[in-house]
């Protein structure tokens, strides 16, 4: 089924064809096949969105693009393989900011640091949101925070060292709220606990696989978002900052394509141009899903800025 989907996506991308031809850079890059390492398992949201974009990159670059899963160590294994590869544009990585930044912070020497990524474009974003089940007594974030002032409120998170886990701990540190974070196994486990009523609220990224479908179906309600700007697709949802909780770590879960820092500039330009064409293609945006695909292309420099900010925030919160 998964492969059928990928094949269908590939076919769709080819038919819709990402119009422009490859960049007219002076170098002969690419002259061979390009591999994109995905440091998380096949089927995860980073993996699937990379596989959506890959056929378009193939078209743009005029060479075959192979997506390779090298999972392990919360992304450390695949990112390590990428960082040690030749900086020639033939070994790229598609990784989340958390997988790029957290293992070096938490584990020390894992063979790379956050400086080993030279992003060439954003693939997807998923803002961290505060969720309650449909039948929850909390109608607003204010209700929930009021309850957390007088008594304990349990909040499920997809792991303590996930972006939501770090963010919720920062919230607890900065306030007197009696929030009890409870780690579950990924977004799926957190959602199951939330829907079955084991926890009163959930704090997780609004990903296309688990959270967005249940927000749409009304099984869960979004009370607030931890990102600083309102979410485009959910403009009515207040930000935690607007509710008076500021200084929280960067809470957009995002994933991007990157090359090594020493990669020649012309190669990076070629890749960035290809990414821009692909990420602004409507068919790709609809395959990635509304609320996941960025509404306009976010270039390498901007991704780099966000990555550094996120890494700095994580280091501060965890360290």
């Amino acid at each position: 089924m998964k492969f059928a989907t990928v094949a269908a996506v590939g076919a769709a991308a080819l038919v819709a064809s990402c119009s422009a031809l490859g960049s007219e850079g002076s170098s002969d890059y690419p002259s061979g096949s390009v591999s994109i390492i995905v440091p998380v398992p096949a089927g995860s949201s980073t993996d699937l969105s990379t596989r959506v974009v890959a056929p378009c990159l193939e078209e743009e670059l005029g060479t075959s693009v192979v997506v390779e899963n090298r999972e392990g160590g919360s992304g450390a294994v695949g990112n390590g393989v990428f960082a040690q590869a030749e900086a020639d544009g033939y070994t790229l990585v598609s990784t989340t900011a958390a997988n790029a930044a957290l293992p070096p912070i938490l584990e020390g020497n894992v063979g790379y640091t956050v400086d080993d990524f030279r992003p060439v474009g954003m693939i997807g974003v998923a803002p961290v949101v505060l969720l309650v089940p449909a039948d929850s007594p909390f109608q607003s974030a204010e209700d929930l925070f009021a309850a957390a002032e007088s008594g304990t409120v349990t909040v499920g998170v997809p792991g303590m060292t996930s972006v939501p886990g770090i963010s919720v701990n920062a919230l607890i540190d900065r306030t007197d709220l009696q929030i009890e974070p409870v780690p579950f196994d990924g977004n799926g486990g957190t959602m199951a606990a939330l829907v079955s009523g084991e926890v009163q609220a959930g704090y997780m990224s609004a990903d296309g696989g688990v959270a967005l479908p249940r927000i749409e179906s009304g099984e869960v309600r979004v009370l607030a978002t931890a990102v600083t700007e309102p979410i485009e697709t959910m403009p009515d949802v207040p930000t935690l900052e607007s509710l008076g909780y500021s200084g929280l770590p960067y809470a957009d879960s995002f994933w991007f394509l990157a090359a090594q820092p020493e990669t020649p500039n012309e190669v990076v330009t070629t890749l960035e141009d290809a990414m821009e064409t692909c990420m602004t293609s409507e068919s790709i945006a609809s395959e990635l899903g509304e609320g996941v695909a960025p509404s306009s292309f976010i270039d390498g420099a901007e991704v780099k800025k966000r990555l550094e900010q996120a890494a700095g925030d994580y280091a501060e919160s965890v360290g």
Partner: peptide
């Protein structure tokens, strides 16, 4: 629960 590593001996492949 905490996300800290146990018995990983600095080997990234053992982190999971």
């Amino acid at each position: 629960m905490t996300g800290g590593s146990r018995w990983a001996l600095g080997v990234p492949a053992l982190l999971d």
